[in-house]
Simulated scan of single mutants.
Amino acid sequence: MRLYVLGGGQLALMMCWESQRIPVHFSVYDPDPSAPAYRCAKRPSDPLEEVDKADAVTFEFENVDISLAERAEKLGKLRPPLAYLKVKKSRIEERALMDSIGVPTVPWRRAANWEEAIKIAESMGRAYVKVPTGGYDGKGQYIYPHEAALIRGLAGELLVEEYVDIRREFSIVAARAENGDVYFYPPAENFYVHGILVWNYAPTKVPEEVYEHVHRILEWGKYVGVIAVEFFEARDGRVLVNEIAPRVHNTGHWTLETDASQFENHVRAVLGLPLRRPRAMAPTAMVNILGVGLGRLPLAELERLGRVYWYYKAEARPRRKMGHLNITAGSVEEAAARAREALRLIYGADFPKLVMRSRPSP
């Protein structure tokens, strides 16, 4: 079997790591010759020809070469389907899809330009204005009225969302096989700073209704592979989908400590193999290593707390995901306490300033 992954970042690297027990020829396309996944995966000599050779094509990120994805879809090889990738390329289209299939989201409106966005935000009183494309890890998001000056002059269509008072954020990572079999990993509770995930833990308790919401998203386009769905739980009791990620996801990195991670199950699903249900699963916390190079990490102390995963990126920059730490424990409370200790070790007294030194740009 030949699997071709579009995008060569850390997600593709971990897919490659976790596919070693599967008889698969694993290749990756990324225009960056130093992309992390090239440490493990083959690099095709002709990116388009590799689509023709592959048994299945998938992607590790939304901002990949769309022409390769379209070619794979035409040949019936792209998993998950192209429709999910196209929806994810626009926050507005993502919101419209959720509305169409009856999945609750933050109340939102479409604005033709920044002037209209300001008017809509004024009518809401307090709002988020978001650039529809290219946004991830908190990029392209502005709070009104606090950041009104940054909203003025933004080009093109914009998404305006009502400000919601959030009690907590959590996510569901699910895998769906080609035959419709679905497996839900235990929910994770997530902690963000300026839109970027800093740490999380699993399992956590969530309302049963969220599983129905995820099922609707999976069935809409007959999804194949792993998907992450991020939720807000508002203080008024509403449970709202914040966004979807039609791929393996940062909030599911903790699953590497199980015997069937999100990365392995994604590879299995897109190749048409049966899903594996994890048989070994302990309470686990994950801490992102953001903007800190290997030379500055207290590695020995972190390894006493858990297991370090390093992504081999050439340069450490503010907010850049350089690696992560997974911590297993006898209870969620113990895992969370050790995660907070890890945050102090990694970032010291400067946390979160060290991590968030630069404001995300549009």
Rank of each mutant, 00 (worst) to 15 (best):
S100D: 08
R235S: 07
M124E: 02
V292P: 15
V226W: 02
L6M: 02
G348P: 01
A228M: 05
Q10W: 10
G195N: 12
A121V: 02
A112N: 02
D99V: 09
M286D: 14
W254C: 01
E62M: 09
R357T: 07
Y309W: 14
K77N: 08
Y183F: 15
R109C: 04
Q141Y: 05
M322N: 09
H146K: 14
A149P: 03
Y163L: 14
Y163A: 15
V355R: 01
F232W: 11
A300I: 09
E230R: 10
N250W: 12
Y223K: 10
G225V: 03
S331I: 05
N190I: 04
D137M: 06
K321L: 11
S261F: 03
R276G: 02
L275Y: 12
V332C: 01
A314M: 03
G102K: 00
V64T: 05
I244P: 06
A127G: 08
N63A: 13
D350N: 03
I120F: 04
M98S: 00
R176A: 02
I151T: 12
G153A: 06
D52C: 07
H253N: 06
K77M: 09
R168K: 15
Y38R: 04
A335C: 03
M124H: 00
V332E: 04
D181C: 05
G237T: 12
A177T: 04
G272L: 01
S34A: 15
A155K: 13
G180P: 05
N326W: 12
A282C: 10
V28Y: 06
V106L: 04
I143N: 06
I196S: 12
L97I: 09
G252M: 11
H215P: 03
D137L: 09
V24G: 10
R110E: 04
E147M: 15
E208V: 13
W17H: 04
E219L: 03
V229T: 03
A112F: 07
V239D: 05
F231E: 02
D32R: 15
V64N: 00
I172Q: 08
V206K: 08
I120D: 02
A188W: 11
A54P: 03
P107C: 00
H253P: 09
A121F: 06
Y185S: 05
V64K: 01
N179T: 14
Y185H: 09
E157K: 08
L68H: 00
F170N: 05
L150P: 11
V226Y: 02
Y144E: 04
S45Y: 12
P104Y: 07
E62P: 13
E50M: 08
R317W: 10
R304A: 14
H194Q: 13
R317P: 02
V224Q: 06
P352L: 00
P33E: 14
R268N: 08
G323F: 06
D30W: 13
E162Q: 15
P23G: 14
Y183M: 12
S361H: 02
L150D: 15
L85I: 07
P278T: 13
I196N: 06
Y223H: 05
D350V: 00
L197Q: 08
P36D: 10
V57N: 03
F61K: 08
C16M: 04
G237Q: 14
R95A: 13
N288K: 15
V287F: 15
N326V: 07
C16G: 09
K119A: 07
R109V: 02
V173S: 02
E341Q: 11
